[in-house]
Amino acid sequence: MTNASTNASTNTSTNATHPLTGLRAMAPHADPDWVDAFVVEQRLLGVPGERIGDALATIEAHLVATGQRVAEAFGPAKEYARELADSGPTRPRGLPTRVMVSSTAGLVGLVLLPRAVAALLNGEQVVVRVGDLVALGLLAVLLWGLFAFGTQVLRALFESRIRTVLTALVPVVLVAVMVGVFTLLRAPVVSLSAWLVAGLGLLATGAATWLSAREPIDLVESPDGRTLGRRSSARWTNIALFPALTALLCLVTWVVWATS
């Protein structure tokens, strides 16, 4: 794919001249629901964004040339997505190891740093309680489940008729369980230096940020360089997510301390 590869290599620099686009604009003659189902299935199968954009442009060109409806020409979206995925290279399915490590490190920083800030402000040590250890265990099980069965979890979520309810409900249930664990299991286990905890938290957040900065940005990209979302925004969101959340929690901790 000589010229296509050349196009791809210049796409980053042409983002400024080629505006952002939406999935519907990538294949305006196709049924939007068909396009959504096709793209979700290709993503779940690990097809790179550049290939998805190429497929959408091919579908659009075919529909314009034939005047056919998308389901008539290409059949059911999911089946076509699977057939097409099998015809070319895909990424390994599931979450890459570097994403697992950076997410875990980011969460560790998110938990440790606000605790360290609270202890430092009060001039105390960080008291590790039974609830902390239980919450840590729950979090580890949850992360393992997500990493091991990430694709299946996402597929089940997308295919569920109540996905909006589930998406809203899962974080609420998770927070409620964690609050319950912290509140009910308060027996102290060990006390640690607040500076040590702060150091570990900074190290974890730093590692998460460093790994996220090296994460390749895989946007759905049309052969003419239009992308679904801005590459720079995606990169900065990746880099800033954990540091920003951690800083926000530290700020909340300080506000609570200052006003109490």
């Binding site: 794919m1 000589t2 010229n3 296509a4 196009n7 497929a55 442009a57 091919t58 579908i59 659009e60 060109a61 075919h62 034939t66 056919q68 008539e72 020409a73 290409f74 059949g75 089946e79 076509y80 057939e83 097409l84 099998d86 015809s87 070319g88 290279p89 049309s222 052969p223 003419d224």
Partner: peptide
Amino acid sequence: KGGTLYPLLGRLETAGHLQAEWLPGEGGPG
């Protein structure tokens, strides 16, 4: 149908039997 043809073209491209390139069109990828 397109649903049969393009996956086949993809397989032939992956096998190195053909190459594909986009020719520019007006207001789109062509």
